[in-house]
């Protein structure tokens, strides 16, 4: 088994004539937490969408868990072990917390095709367990999540990701819309993932958070990776210099 869980070689995505992502070479080792930073439109979310197959790449290769993969959709990526928290919440507001956690992967008492009977008890028990391991506090998991605050809903989405994460977690700006306390809670979940040795790609605008949480920082600028720096060999000013293009030039792509 190789040390590398995720690798992209020459990953490229063009929308018509727009080069959203050019020749991205990226590696992620097992247990490693990497942040992807960059200005708006630098290609961060595009990069994630190619890996999770929400969109199909124009060119390049993706290697996951030792072999080349080309997922046809996000579901396949998930089944392979990549759990993603998308920028837009993928939650059903009218369902309660267990129903959301197990959406599309319900536990059944017995199977009868589409009319398979749900095992409410088992799903509820495993939900409480998952919330406990991720340290998410939800007052009443039996209420529809519509009645919850934005932060709590985000926590449910992240708890779902964390609970089922097997090989890789990707989070696309998980704290963008959250308050201070809620952000702290999400950061705790991320630290929990680190302790469990689950690798993560974190997209974030918040450099304080990035330096707090991850091992390595990858900077995107104009669709290219312009820097990949270990946390201890850089600082905030350095990263901002790369983001704004003061340092590093787009042709000297590093991995």
């Amino acid at each position: 088994m190789s040390d590398i869980i995720l690798e992209t070689r020459g990953l490229t995505k063009r929308y018509g004539g727009v080069h959203a992502l050019e020749d991205a070479n990226f590696t992620l080792r097992r247990g490693e937490h990497v942040a992807v930073v960059g200005d708006n439109g630098a290609g961060k979310s595009t990069f994630v969408r190619q890996i999770t197959a929400v969109e199909q790449k124009t060119a390049g290769q993706v290697f996951f868990d030792g072999q080349e993969v080309s997922f046809t959709g996000p579901l396949e990526a998930r089944e392979a072990g990549i759990e993603t928290v998308f920028q837009t919440l993928a939650l059903a507001d009218d369902l309660d917390v267990p129903a959301n956690l197990f959406l599309g992967r319900e536990i059944f008492r017995f199977r009868m095709g589409p009319f398979s009977v749900l095992d409410h008890k088992a799903m509820r028990a495993r939900t409480l367990e998952a919330l406990k391991t991720t340290a998410v506090k939800i007052p009443n998991v039996d209420n529809p999540i519509r009645n919850m605050s934005g932060g709590q809903r985000q926590c449910v989405a992240i708890a779902r990701t964390a609970a089922f994460a097997s090989k890789l977690v990707i989070m696309d700006e998980p704290t963008a819309a959250l308050g201070v306390q809620e952000t702290a809670q999400v950061e705790n979940i991320i630290r929990g993932l680190k302790e469990r040795g689950i690798p993560m790609v974190l997209i974030s605008h918040n450099l304080r958070q990035v330096f707090d949480l991850v091992d390595r920082i990858v900077v995107f600028r104009r669709g290219r990776i312009v820097a990949s720096l270990r946390k201890d060999e850089t600082d905030g000013n350095d990263i901002v210099a790369y983001i704004t293009g003061v340092k590093g030039n787009a042709e000297a792509a590093m991995a």
Partner: peptide, 21 residues
């Protein structure tokens, strides 16, 4: 049943239902 659960899920957020497989 799964059928019922998915009815509510699709009516609640079709995109999320799709993304959940």
């Amino acid at each position: 049943t799964k059928y019922g659960r998915h009815c509510y899920a699709i009516g609640s957020n079709e995109q999320a239902a799709r993304m959940s497989g």
